[in-house]
Amino acid sequence: MRGGVLTVLSNFLSGLGQAQFFLLSVLRAVLPSLLRPALIVRQLYMIGVLSLIIIVISGMFIGMVLSLQGYHTLVQFGAASSLGVLVALSIIRELGPVVTALLFAGRAGSALAAEIGLMRATDQLSAMEMMAVNPMRYVIAPRFIAGVIAMPLLTAIFCVMAIGVAGGHAIGVGLLHVDAGSYWTQIRANVDLHDLLQALIKSLVFGAVVSWIAVYQGYTAPPTSEGVSRATTSTVVVSSLSILALDFILTAFMFR
């Protein structure tokens, strides 16, 4: 029994250690890979453009529901004009970066892990190595970079969707007749660049962590169908947990 616990623990630690070494070799490959923008553009398409629809639609609905819930609470205190602040601050500080990252892990992270896992299983990565092409530079680093670039952009789009275009604004102003002027002036009076900076830092960190987990899981997946499917699942699970834990840590740090 004790032996079992020890094995699990040592497996966990060695996995963690391997992942760190893997990250180091990814980071070493980042610079050479930046000289190959065509590869990154392709991955931005796979990771960013293809995640756009899910991000836009989720952003809209989350903004809408937040607006609806917030209104009914605020109206009891006669503070319905603060609806904009409520929506904007919750979205920018928390929901924007976190929900975008969770959706990203489910949409793009799982696809990354499965793709790389299958490339490993079908010897494509080995074939590259044998053709003297470093798969770290050709396959892994472009995907990692694209993830780090795409996440803040997707987060910004999510926030705009949720607060403005169709989410909070549509419900608050359109349906619940909160004054559009006070909706926006309240937001502007209470949201400052500091909040945006926090959202940016969070989304960069989440982008790096989710991409790291996804490429690592894919790269080390056993070359079997079960191995690939397990890598996909653990990408989503590990990413989601890391996002939530990191969100707490980052918030605690940045709000002091």
């Binding site: 079908t122 053709m131 092409v133």
Partner: peptide
């Protein structure tokens, strides 16, 4: 490795590239 090649059992072609691009791959690299 540029002086030797390994032909994998299943070919190990890069699935996101066409036949032409697969053969061109080592030349471009």
């Amino acid at each position: 490795r540029k002086r030797m090649s390994l032909l994998f059992q299943n070919g190990a072609l890069l699935t996101d590239l066409s036949v032409f691009e697969n053969v061109a791959f080592p030349l471009r690299e």
